[in-house]
C-alpha cells in the first residue's frame, strides 16, 4: 500500500486535504475500513499535526482512499500539549 506524509489542512466530513513536504495537496476520503472516525480528522487539522497516510487509489474519482492515518509527531498547539 502506498503512503505519504504531511499536514492535514482542510477537513469536511470524512474527506480531508493533506499538504505534503513539496507543498502538493492531495484529497483523501477516509475509508469505511479505516480504524479512525471522521470526527477525529478535525482534531488533526486543528492541531496541524504531522501524519502519515496509507492509501490506495479510488476508481472513477479524482481522490485517494485513506486506509490508515498515523500520528508522526507531538501536536503543536497548546491544547495538544496539555
Amino acid at each position: 500500500m502506498k503512503q505519504t506524509e504531511g499536514v492535514v489542512t482542510i477537513v469536511q466530513e470524512g474527506r480531508f486535504q493533506l499538504s505534503d513536504d513539496a507543498g502538493v495537496s492531495h484529497l483523501f476520503i477516509l475509508s469505511h475500513a479505516a480504524s479512525g472516525e471522521p470526527q477525529q480528522l478535525e482534531t488533526l487539522q486543528r492541531r496541524q499535526s504531522r501524519v502519515r497516510v496509507r492509501y490506495r487509489p479510488a476508481r472513477n474519482v479524482i481522490g485517494l482512499i485513506a486506509e490508515a492515518i498515523d500520528l508522526l509527531e507531538p501536536a503543536k498547539s497548546e491544547d495538544a500539549r496539555q
Partner: peptide, 10 residues
C-alpha cells in the same frame, strides 16, 4: 471547492 468533494464520473 468548499466541501472538499472529489471530481467523479470521469
Amino acid at each position: 471547492e468548499w466541501n472538499n468533494l472529489p471530481a467523479d464520473n470521469l
